[in-house]
Design a protein around this nucleic acid. Structure first.
Lengths: 149, 149
DNA sequence: CTGAGTGCAAACGTTTTGCACTTGC
DNA sequence: GCAAGTGCAAAACGTTTGCACTCAG
């Protein structure tokens, strides 16, 4: 993915900090502001949290990235892409995209409500296959558990 | 609805404050902590915000209420009920429940991902019928706009 | 060159915590 | 009577802002 063009297309200046943020976001898929900050300090030792927030906010405003709000967790951010859903393991915190075919539901709701729908946000939560078997541990709340390698 | 039993069934003590919170939540449907606090001060002049948060947290922990996270907005809380979705007008902030038939999608995702799904969170956002016609105002961000009477 | 972006410190709003007091059961 | 809940003030967060400096275009 070409982050420079991505930024330019949305009218934002290209800075090393922004490139770092986007590349990290692209690698990790979904990431919270503080994870982002912790990780990026390796490359930009003097970057400030304020800069992180300013960039996250400006990139959200220009729709370069989007915020994913997850029940009982802090928001994560991802590079904007076509509509899709998210799947969360409540045990180990694994979090992934899922393809989504909400057309039927969206059409149905549009007709009944007469709303003009422009955005959908779906998060399904449950227990991933690994957590179902391994350690039938009761209430482990993240962060981190086993690795899904 | 019988709030006293609701609390007892979930192992929480019945206090006037909690009854007030639940009744308010029931009336308003979805409400944020500070709206809750503002409204409840009429009845409990000396209630503290800390108590509000403690109660919201304990009732969430015992699944008496659930949190609804909405893109670009503060969380609202509602009394727990069967799975359903939410519909938000981005213009005026109208927010309502919608019936949901996600069975097909949930089944599909379960099979493909092997997750055991236990929770779904869906928010559809768009423009309500009234906002589509009335004032084609550009970027009005809430709170409050016209009344949907 | 100029406006946008950066970094720092301070300010802000929200949520949590510790502690003494009160209340539900 | 005792654990749980309440209220207050203080602390801890997360996020934003103002300002001087730097850098991208």
């Amino acid at each position: 993915m070409n982050y420079e063009n991505l930024l330019r297309e949305h009218g934002l200046k290209v800075t090393p900090q922004r490139l770092g943020i986007l590349s990290l976001m692209d690698q990790k898929g979904h990431i919270s502001v503080d994870e982002l900050y912790l990780n990026i300090k390796d490359q930009f030792t003097s970057i400030s949290l304020a800069t992180m927030y300013k960039n996250v906010n400006s990139m959200m405003a220009s729709s370069v990235i989007t915020e994913v709000k997850i029940p009982k967790q802090k928001s994560r951010f991802e590079i904007a892409k076509e509509a899709h859903g998210h799947l969360l393991c409540q045990e180990c915190g694994e979090f992934m995209d899922i393809e989504l075919d909400l057309e039927k539901i969206v059409d149905d709701v549009s007709i009944k409500s007469k709303y003009k729908l422009v955005e959908t946000s779906l998060v399904l939560s449950g227990i991933c296959p690994l957590c179902q078997h391994s350690s039938a541990s009761p209430v482990s709340i993240f962060p981190v558990a086993h690795s899904h390698i």
